[in-house]
Design a protein around this nucleic acid. Structure first.
Lengths: 242, 242
DNA sequence: GTTAAAAAATTGGTCATACCATATAGCGAG
DNA sequence: CTCGCTATATGGTATGACCAATTTTTTAAC
């Protein structure tokens, strides 16, 4: 008889307070703009010390629920949803160039691996999807345009063709970060510099390598492609830092 | 002339500390699993009071960067734990063979990429660390043993030598999943089958390729190594399912 | 010498108190 | 009534103490 004993993590007092206040907000008893009782009052109300209350408020402030102003008071902030970001997103929100480079590099490793696997396992449906997306890109390129969404979808389709669910999840996290940071700016940068034809060629080569069942070639082409992306990103970042 | 006036809000001390620690994590100086200095030490180091440090840690904990355990200490969490692992951890704990295969495959992609990067960037310190760990493995192998911890540490050291903090975090999530599932069983399986010498050879070849600055070779050797791991894992799973 | 139990040191969690900095409210001078 | 000053309320920081859980070291037993 295996008794699964619970994660006896005695909850911290401040966490209890966080939960209570969060509940008040979610129940609408505390509306945006309201001023909550002072730290001292809350402490006596809850029968705890002020530091505990303070830690709770600190956490809620970090979450975006509250906003404290010295001398003024603590107010409920209008939560526009989306304030809850992953740890990863919080890190790159500063657009630290070093981190973005690391991000691009991780992406390079993951996607080239996806291409390798895709070349081994892509089925007819996968290939048809890739061809469809490539046709759209080609059409756009003929008009001198480039849609980030289509580009992104193309890369997703490759990972999907790897038929590895976990790979899909991991890459999704990385990719969404990329989108959230400089994806769009990067695409515009391409258009200005007239690199669209090169991009199109890259994608075609990758697709053909996958269709021809040449894993090593697909990997290599994806690597070349993303190397250029990283290079352009570095240019973009150095320009902006001037 | 538009003068965008700014924030005005003088930054709180705790926020300052939050930024500093976040930066340490993003730059990779604090890696997943590391224990950060105690609250008291940090307070004296930074020249502030303990409550300020505590508030900062509280916020970072809420953000998912840190994890504090009473009496134990405060540790750096892998940034991808929440966003990638949680949904999948439940699936993997059932030891679904399909998912374990996917896991091993993702690991293969990530680690071979780590080896490639490490061969380009490993410094003297990184190499010394690898050699030290290899020596331990060699000694163990001479006695017919194989310690999973040392093996794991060796692979971590390679990723550390890639000098990409994000790569470190992503791989940590994957690796911890691996450890939680079949890592130990796998090691025992090796010993039973007398594959220790082959394992040792693999690790030596990888290490030498990195030391010789041969990225492609390092990648290839890591791939061979992990291919064998995946193969053995498949054997183990099929045996157990009988 | 190895292992297990016990004690000590370390570390996070909580509390109490005091004082500083800032914003708001209220009062008073003009 | 308006402007400016003062008093007060409130968040921000610092110090110190003690508790609870964990880790490490020491000690004792085998």
């Amino acid at each position: 008889m295996t008794i699964v004993l619970k994660p006896i993590r005695p909850k911290k007092i401040s966490e209890e307070i966080v939960d209570q206040i969060k509940q008040l907000i979610s129940k609408g008893e505390l509306k945006p703009g309201d001023r909550i009782p002072s730290e001292r009052d809350l402490a006596t109300m809850l029968g705890v010390s002020r530091p505990s209350v303070r830690e709770a408020i600190m956490v809620l402030e970090a979450m975006g629920f509250l906003d404290s102003r010295q001398g003024g008071g603590t107010f409920v902030r209008a939560l526009t949803e989306g304030s809850i970001m992953d740890p990863l997103a919080k890190l790159v929100e500063k657009k630290d160039p070093e981190l973005l480079r690391a991000l691009a590099e991780v992406r390079m490793g993951l996607e080239s691996w996806s291409a390798y696997l895709a070349a081994q396992r892509a089925n007819a449906e996968d290939l048809a999807n890739l061809r469809r997306l490539y046709a759209i890109m080609e059409k756009q390129a003929a008009k001198g345009g480039w849609k980030p969404e289509v580009d992104t979808e193309f890369h997703y389709a490759i990972t999907a063709a790897s038929h590895n669910s976990l790979q899909m999840h991991v890459l999704d996290s990385i990719h969404s970060l990329f989108n959230a940071t400089i994806q769009v700016a990067l695409m515009e940068f391409y258009q200005q510099q007239g690199h669209i034809q090169r991009l199109l060629t890259h994608h075609r080569e990758i697709m053909e390598a996958i269709a021809d069942r040449q894993p090593e070639l697909a990997r290599q082409k994806m690597m070349e492609h993303l190397s250029m992306v990283e290079e352009k990103m570095a240019q973009l970042l150095s320009e902006n830092s001037e």
